[in-house]
Amino acid sequence: MAPLLQVDNIEVYYGVIKALKGISFEVNKGEIVALIGANGAGKTTILHTVTGLLKPKTGKILFKGNDITKVPAHKIVTMGMAHVPEGRRIFSQLSVLDNIKLGAFTRKDKEEIEETLNYVYERFPRLKERKNQIAGTLSGGEQQMLAMGRALMSKPEFVLMDEPSMGLSPLLVSEIFEIIKAINENGTTVLLVEQNAKKALSIADRAYVLETGNIVLSGDAKDLMNDESVKKAYLSE
């Protein structure tokens, strides 16, 4: 079976700086795939390029067999891809509920949206409790849940998550990772970018290791967890 997402030799530039130097990887339906690597390795750039916020200079991106390399970001959402961006990027002036509803911006059927809303509330009961609160007043963990809930509102087949554990307490980090696992078990494919390599590898099926714009290592998450070089560089053991 063809992979759900296939990234083929993409190069991305910020002005004259080459941020991605020919990246290829794939994500199969049902998987959790982790991208790990140090700051500035290009993890976020990859996610932005996949969802269309950045356009590659060369290379190709296929989603469900369709070439989406030149499709604008707002249209890619309608194809079943959602992105939980780094730093959450919730709309801090709007209420929690307005934020969640914006996640369903491209959907028309009111009843189905209501159904998804209930699913999101079930997954994140705290969002339901705080639905009328202004989103900017939520705690960091709640904002992360809001960003994830908002992404789920488009009923995506495929979710990209960028540093979901950033700035959260260890307890919350575990909670967030449990939720990611549950979302995946519910049938959503996940591409996960994390600095917390240990946590990421513990829930991922496969992983890619990035270094300054190149993929230097890839394989089963369990094998990578036992790989000496990975251990030394990313698992701080």
Partner: peptide
């Protein structure tokens, strides 16, 4: 609401499909 979203964060608004 899309206008409010765009005024706060264009990138995040695009990710919503706006």
């Amino acid at each position: 609401r899309a206008m409010l979203a765009v005024s706060e964060d264009k990138g995040a608004a695009q990710l919503m499909g706006i």
